[in-house]
């Protein structure tokens, strides 16, 4: 059924790997193509983060930081991180839709790499993540944000946020596999992710909070990542929050990647 092109000089394993990557790219293209037909989806990861940024900046900025200009330096990296967490819901939502509607089985019945459908979904969502970061940075610069570090710092921030996005995606894969329907994925997204992102230093400095809450906030990976992003964009301590963020990324992936794949196979074998 497949037209396997002969690749002189490559063994079968490499050939299969190349095919798998090509298939992943095709499946990622398909996920992104859906946006063209449902432009409202674009709103969720474009307009929503901008709204968040503007609301917090102009409603709370004066109260929290004394001036909106000062608060922008604090909140822009924070909103980038918060938005990253919310956008990962799409991985679970899209996967669950594919599973419940039978699209996933259509792919599984094709002679393609076993991991390509899942990889395609995750890659597509990393593209959405990159777009969101770019957009928020652009709006930030329009509002008067200035880079306190360098372009290297900016790129490192983007790379770090995407790394965490990849890790958190594995949690969402699990949610997408377990949830009965796409609506439940979204429900989970709102009920679980709102507290996790708000009980952090994304919006306000941690020292304004009661002592008991500070402990929670300080170990929250969202806080670590927000600190690291501030360091890389504005300036300040970088190494420690970055290492904490990376440690969290490794831990989340180590737990949730095998768990998600196991749950996915279980669900597929059951149906």
């Amino acid at each position: 059924m497949t037209q396997h092109r002969d690749r002189p000089g490559t063994d079968i394993l490499t050939g299969r790997m190349m095919d798998g990557l090509q298939q992943t790219r095709t499946l990622a293209w398909r996920s992104l193509l859906q946006i063209r037909h449902n432009p409202w989806q674009l709103g969720d990861f474009s307009i929503q983060p901008i709204l968040f940024l503007l609301l917090f900046l102009y409603v709370f900025g004066g109260a929290i930081a004394g001036s909106t200009g000062e608060y922008l330096r604090f909140i822009l990296p924070g909103v980038i991180v918060m938005n990253m967490v919310f956008v990962t819901v799409y991985v679970g939502h899209g996967l669950n839709t594919d599973l419940t509607k039978g699209v996933f089985d259509r792919f599984r019945a094709l002679p393609i790499a076993r991991w390509a459908p899942l990889a395609g979904r995750i890659v597509a969502d990393l593209v959405k993540q990159a777009w969101s970061i770019l957009l928020l940075l652009a709006v930030g610069f329009l509002l008067g944000f200035r880079l306190g570090t360098s372009v290297t710092g900016l790129l490192a921030m983007a790379a770090l946020v995407l790394t965490l996005a990849l890790a958190v995606s594995w949690i969402m894969v699990l949610v997408g596999v377990i949830a009965r329907d796409p609506e439940h994925v979204q429900l989970f997204g709102f009920t679980a992710l709102f507290p996790v992102t708000f009980v952090s230093n994304v919006f306000v400095p941690v020292d304004t909070m009661p002592q008991w809450l500070q402990g929670v906030v300080n170990v929250n990976p969202v806080s670590n990542l927000a600190d690291a992003s501030r360091g890389l964009l504005v300036g300040g301590p970088v190494l420690e929050p970055t290492l904490w963020s990376l440690a969290w990324a490794c831990a989340i992936t180590a737990v949730f990647a095998p768990l998600s794949v196991w749950a996915l196979n279980r669900r597929l074998m059951r149906g």
Binding site: L33, K101, V103, R106
Partner: peptide
């Protein structure tokens, strides 16, 4: 080739896009 309620096309894509997608996946 498999057709059934559970092996479905992507209803967010157009008819043509669905077929192109599968052809591309098949190399």
């Amino acid at each position: 080739g498999l057709t059934g309620q559970y092996a479905s096309v992507d209803d967010k894509l157009t008819g043509r896009e669905n077929l192109v997608l599968i052809a591309r996946l098949l190399g």
